[in-house]
């Protein structure tokens, strides 16, 4: 029986990719929370958020690639 020990930490590269959406969607809100310029008929803040909903999967995909490669070399445990 293996005791419940802390898990292996995620790699720094994956974490950095994970922080990108936080910067874009959360901390930078004073920079993008405005109406102009209106793009595709939408106020800028809505347009910005929708673009980042599309970009977040790309960041996570990059993080996934890093974790998957590490899993292969370092064993899954």
């Amino acid at each position: 029986m293996i005791p419940a020990t802390p898990a292996r930490k995620p790699s720094r590269g994956a974490l950095l990719w994970g922080l990108v959406p936080f910067g874009a969607l959360c901390f930078s809100v004073p920079l993008w929370d405005r109406i102009d310029p209106m793009l595709f008929g939408m106020p800028f803040n809505l347009f910005w958020l929708l673009s980042w909903i599309a970009l977040t999967p790309l960041c996570l995909w990059a993080a996934y690639r890093i974790e998957a490669r590490r899993g292969k070399h370092g064993g899954s445990e």
Partner: peptide, 25 residues
């Protein structure tokens, strides 16, 4: 109301890092 778009997307970023080790345990 825009907070809903931001938090839902970021919740999946959080899940990327915490759910796999929870699953392993």
């Amino acid at each position: 109301t825009l907070y809903i778009l931001a938090y839902l997307s970021l919740a999946y970023v959080v899940s990327f890092f915490i759910l796999p080790p929870i699953w392993e345990m």
